[in-house]
Amino acid sequence: MIAVSRSTTHTFTKPNQESIQLLTGLGVEGDSHMGKTVQHRSRVAVDPNQPNLRQIHLIHAELHDELQAAGFAVSAGQMGENITTRGINLLDLPTGTRLHLGNKAVVELTGLGNPCAQLDQFQTGLMAAVLDRDEHGKLIRKAGVMGIVAIGGEVRSGDRIQIELPPEPHQSLDRV
């Protein structure tokens, strides 16, 4: 992990922290998206009682590199992620993958982050830059992955991440 971030309010960016505390079944302690039920405003408006499958947002730093090469000024936490990784192809991991973070914490991946219009409010053109199409025309969402806290614990910048794949057959991550 190269950075951990949280925000107590529904701001787009999340300030980097030395460490964050993950709470089992809830998310990041003190983060505005923490809770058993959905906390994202657009989803609360639809159904405030749906389970929160978006407790933790992870983005790979390689996306920041790609965006910086395209002229965007982005860094860890600025796209709303709680955890910024490097060297892990998050988008290719299957649903149910468990990421062992630091000494104790475990995050289970639930799906892909769904880019929203706030990206363009942060920097014009950023939303289009995190969307792509494959050779068959299928939409590719590159704005990170979402997960739930399966086992809580303290997570720090610089901690190792171990990947535990779910049993086969694997199911590709989809929008949550």
Rank of each mutant, 00 (worst) to 15 (best):
86 R>E: 03
139 L>Y: 10
85 T>Y: 08
82 N>L: 02
64 H>A: 03
28 V>Y: 08
172 S>N: 13
121 Q>M: 04
162 Q>C: 04
101 L>N: 02
122 F>R: 14
121 Q>P: 02
79 M>S: 03
105 A>V: 09
148 I>Y: 08
47 D>W: 09
102 G>N: 06
3 A>N: 03
96 G>S: 05
34 M>D: 00
46 V>C: 01
124 T>W: 00
90 L>K: 07
167 P>Q: 11
8 T>S: 12
166 P>T: 12
127 M>A: 09
59 I>C: 03
87 G>D: 09
43 R>Y: 07
8 T>A: 13
100 H>N: 11
2 I>H: 05
93 L>T: 08
69 A>L: 12
167 P>T: 09
101 L>A: 02
60 H>N: 13
92 D>H: 14
2 I>A: 02
49 N>K: 15
146 M>G: 04
124 T>N: 10
18 E>G: 11
111 G>W: 09
129 A>G: 01
172 S>D: 13
44 V>D: 03
116 C>Q: 10
67 L>M: 07
159 D>C: 05
172 S>A: 15
22 L>G: 07
20 I>Q: 07
137 G>V: 06
97 T>S: 13
57 H>E: 04
72 F>Q: 04
20 I>P: 13
147 G>K: 11
131 L>M: 14
55 Q>W: 11
22 L>E: 01
167 P>Y: 05
66 E>N: 11
82 N>I: 09
150 A>W: 13
3 A>Y: 06
7 S>V: 01
68 Q>K: 13
120 D>G: 08
34 M>G: 02
61 A>V: 09
2 I>D: 02
123 Q>S: 11
114 N>S: 15
10 H>E: 14
35 G>P: 02
